[in-house]
Nucleic acid binder design. Structure first.
Lengths: 230, 230
DNA sequence: TCCTGCAGTTGAACGTGTTCAACTGCAGGC
DNA sequence: GCCTGCAGTTGAACACGTTCAACTGCAGGA
């Protein structure tokens, strides 16, 4: 028997993700994942630290697919609002089959101790890729942005993406149409806000927001700030 | 033996909340809660549908305490930003002892099926009270707000509160100081944004935001929209 | 040929949240 | 005094996620 570790790992991930899609997260037991993959329970735990880590695998795959789907859709010179709309809708498209256990997704992502948290140091590469996608949307767009805001805009849009995802998870409407509506309404608002930020009258507010974002990104960038009681 | 149902229920809730505070959520087993309360496991499940429902009990108590703590702190005629700051800091004060299982808190709150979701129809009374608190902060403040925005402002501030809470849950800094910093930076920004919204140049954006909030509150108010596949 | 080491694997066992059919004891009719 | 109904209670039993000491089989030296 004894495949290579990589083979068994992928076999388990594929099986688990299929069962998650077919029966949901709770109804999919580790015993069944192992059984359908043709390995023992203990072996499954040898390759994945727990059931949660199998969801992280899905997280990674979704993100890869998101980028693959959205990149061709980003139009050079289009308004930023339009490109943002493409990114957000593409994200919803990709996540769509997994709405059933979005709550599980969130439960795992929210654990500060876990490496799955979008804010954790461990997921810095994944976060950097997500930020890179937003940066691409900004760079390709024809919308004029002040340099100061331009540097922080990807981060701001990424937070927007998180907020939309949060809404999507709790969205019980048919096919999550309400989240689609939210995206369609939100993107023009973001576009207008950015346009407004260039006016002198909004300069003070814009600067304050940038400072706030700076302090937030310090949270994300500097693991040393994670000190706890000695 | 056989106390009244209300007595046993409260005894269990008190015991559970004490154990949660002392040992955290995961380390507190239903068996131990029942044992320390002097009842059987089955009895505990007779009074609470599950471990999650005991956390909902905490959710209710925290909210009551939040209102009690913050109401005296709201200053008549103060800038809205100051009153908002009081509400948010008071919220953090009250939640502070329970930061350890904030993730558990969120896990339960996020389930759309559960009645614990802040967006669910079941928690409408709790949400209404939270909104009422924000309305009070707005009404007591001396900040001038356009009527259209004024009507939606409590909802907007409530969403702000949710966002801050989300940051708090994932905040690993000592005593969650970073969230405190976030609040201190965020409140002036909100104040400035509201001031800016009154200017004619921002009228279009303000209207768009209000329309967006309208569609969001339709989500919350109208349970009929929760239809799923027939 | 035998031994050693190790990557890959096994499944019984543990403690968990949760369920449920059965028990207890009291209030109130007869 | 006896029966009935029911609110309150019980704990064994179930399936689950997770752990871990032990097993397998092969590669590569002696």
């Amino acid at each position: 028997m004894a495949r290579t570790a990589a083979e068994t790992r992928e076999l388990l991930a594929d099986t688990a993700l299929r069962l998650f899609r077919e029966h949901g997260f709770d109804a999919t037991t580790m015993r069944r994942i192992a059984a359908e993959a043709g390995v023992s329970i203990g072996n499954a735990y040898h390759h994945f630290a727990g059931k949660d880590e199998l969801v992280q695998e899905l997280y990674v795959r979704i993100q890869d697919e998101h980028r693959a789907v959205v990149e061709p859709r980003l139009v050079e010179g289009a308004p930023l609002a339009d490109n943002l709309r493409s990114v957000l809708h593409a994200g919803l498209d990709v996540m769509s089959p997994y709405h059933g256990f979005g709550q599980t997704f969130l439960r795992i992502a929210v654990q500060p101790t876990s490496s799955a948290s979008p804010f954790s140091a461990d997921s810095a590469p994944a976060r950097e890729r997500a930020l890179g996608l937003m940066r691409l949307a900004v760079d390709r767009s024809g919308t004029k942005v002040s340099p100061g805001l331009g540097a922080r805009l990807p981060q701001l849009l990424w937070l927007t993406h998180l907020a939309v995802t949060l809404h999507w998870v709790t969205d019980t409407s048919l096919d999550q149409r309400r989240t689609r509506t939210l995206v369609d309404g939100l993107c023009p608002v973001v576009g207008r806000a950015i346009a407004l930020s260039r006016l002198p009258v909004a300069r003070g507010l814009t600067d304050q927001v940038l400072i706030l974002l700076d302090s937030l990104s310090t949270d994300l960038a500097d693991p040393a700030t994670k000190e706890s009681v000695s």
